[in-house]
Amino acid sequence: MTYDEQLARRVREILADESGLSERKMFGGLGFMLDGNMAVAAGSGGGLMIRADPSDPDGLIDGDLIVPMEMGGREMTGWLLADQRAITSDERLRELVQLGIDRARSFPPK
């Protein structure tokens, strides 16, 4: 299964003015990198993987719509997964992508 092309297009529109933007296919998804640091990724199930500040994840968790990211049965600190139902509105998608932008920009360029 490949990433959701429509979601990738929506994310590209949001990130269009960001400097240092690149895309990388990985794990069946499409990662959006800012100066080499991943901000968000369009997933194969239509969801959005978001890089977030691990010091305040509880404020972002939203039932089963936004959950801590798990890979291989282990929680990935600093990553959230937004179900496709959580990103139907452009405004909400923009808010979540901005979280990823802010976190990715908090790291030095690679």
Rank of each mutant, 00 (worst) to 15 (best):
W79Y: 15
S55T: 15
S55H: 10
A86W: 07
S55M: 08
S55K: 13
D64S: 14
S19E: 15
M76K: 06
L30T: 06
L34N: 07
M33N: 13
A52W: 06
E91M: 09
G47F: 10
A82S: 06
L99Q: 13
V11D: 09
A39H: 08
D53G: 11
G59Q: 09
R85N: 14
G47E: 15
V11C: 03
D17W: 02
A39V: 02
L21M: 07
M33S: 00
E23A: 03
A86P: 05
R74I: 06
M76G: 03
G29M: 04
L81R: 05
M71C: 03
A104F: 09
S44C: 05
G36P: 01
E91G: 11
G45W: 12
G72K: 12
D53R: 05
G29H: 01
M26N: 05
A16G: 01
A41E: 11
G28P: 00
R105M: 11
E13H: 10
I101C: 10
Q84P: 14
A16K: 14
I50V: 15
M49S: 13
D83M: 06
V40N: 04
S106W: 08
A82M: 10
R24W: 02
T77W: 02
F107W: 11
T77C: 01
L93Y: 13
E91W: 01
L99A: 08
R92Y: 08
D62G: 02
E18I: 00
M71W: 03
G29I: 01
E18L: 11
S106D: 12
M26I: 08
D56Q: 15
K25W: 00
D64P: 00
E70N: 03
L80A: 05
F27G: 01
L15G: 04
E70I: 01
E75R: 11
D102M: 07
G72T: 04
G45F: 03
R51G: 04
E75A: 09
A52K: 08
M38G: 02
D83L: 01
S55G: 07
G43L: 13
G43P: 01
A52M: 14
D83R: 10
S22D: 15
L30C: 02
D83C: 03
W79S: 06
P54A: 14
R94Q: 15
W79P: 00
D53Q: 12
P57W: 07
R105P: 00
L80D: 06
G73F: 05
K25N: 02
S22F: 02
W79R: 03
G78Q: 04
G72S: 11
A16Y: 04
E70A: 11
Q98D: 15
D35G: 07
S106N: 09
P68E: 15
L60V: 03
E75Q: 14
E91I: 11
V97Y: 13
G63Y: 09
D17Y: 04
R105V: 04
T77D: 12
D35C: 05
D102A: 14
A104N: 07
G28E: 11
M26P: 00
G36H: 07
D35W: 14
I87K: 05
S44Y: 06
A42L: 02
A52F: 09
S55P: 00
N37M: 06
G78L: 03
